[in-house]
């Protein structure tokens, strides 16, 4: 079985948030749900300031606090190491969300169909799209995945359940890269199998020093950062997105 991991090259990231958008369209996530988020940071005082950027997907931790606290096993580890959310089992207690130190969980506070940015209830549009909401609804997300055949793909699935970055399980199972990685204009995001010594991620991790976020929490994240340092308490977020439903 593969051991999937993501490697993020901070030296390349321009903080453009194209990954955020690629994720949103691919996974049909509702308003304000940013499974992939990119921090824009500022440090220091004028004129000795430093500006940098840090993408934040789900860390898909190997010792995932969210998996441990899930009362019903809706949040679970797949054999390939992806931390998945079975939205058919989730009871919406949001314990995973409070347990997660990374803030990657998003709850469906509303009926997703009514939470896709615009009122898509439009006759002229329905004539073309057949009335799907959103009009760019991705049918791949409707399939069960993994040997366990559980419903883990995509966002905006049901009111009152938790969702988060899936590492694009529906793409990964087809041998494609997660949408954010596939689209990154600066090739700052990498994805692959750590068990394969020739994969990009293995090679990058061999070549460059890396860190993982909040490693001291013992969560053993599967997202590695190279080419930079973790944020410190002196790191201020700028241009933060505070989208609410």
């Amino acid at each position: 079985m593969a051991r999937y991991a993501m490697v993020i090259d901070l030296e390349r990231c321009t903080g453009c948030r194209a990954c955020v958008e690629a994720c949103k369209v691919e996974n049909n996530t509702p308003t304000a749900n940013l499974w992939m988020y990119v921090f824009r940071f500022e440090e220091g005082e004028y004129p000795n300031t430093h500006v940098w950027f840090m993408p934040r997907p789900c860390m898909h931790c190997d010792n995932a606090p969210c998996v441990k606290v899930c009362p019903v096993g809706a949040r679970y580890k797949r054999l390939d190491g992806l931390t998945a959310t079975d939205w058919e089992r989730c009871i919406g207690c949001r314990y995973c969300e409070v347990a997660c130190p990374y803030g990657v969980n998003y709850f469906n506070w509303k009926d997703p169909a009514e939470n896709y940015y615009l009122d898509w209830n439009d006759e002229d549009l329905a004539a073309v799209t057949g009335g799907t909401t959103p009009p760019y609804r991705n049918p791949d997300l409707d399939q069960p995945y993994g040997s366990e055949q559980r419903r883990v793909a995509g966002g905006g699935r049901a009111k009152g359940v938790i969702e988060k970055c899936t590492f694009c399980v529906h793409r990964v199972e087809q041998g494609l890269l997660p949408a954010c990685v596939a689209n990154c204009p600066l090739f700052a995001l990498h994805f692959g199998d750590l068990d394969d010594p020739n994969s990009t991620v293995s090679r990058l991790l061999r070549r460059k020093p890396s860190f993982r976020l909040l490693e001291e929490q013992g969560t053993q994240p599967r997202v590695y950062y190279i080419g930079g340092k973790p944020p410190t308490t002196e790191t201020r977020q700028i241009e933060e997105v505070k989208a609410r439903v």
Partner: peptide
């Protein structure tokens, strides 16, 4: 109930 230990497979999510 669900197996003990650090969850590393779907088995840990089911009783």
């Amino acid at each position: 109930a669900a197996p003990w230990g650090i969850p590393s497979s779907p088995a840990y999510s089911n009783p």
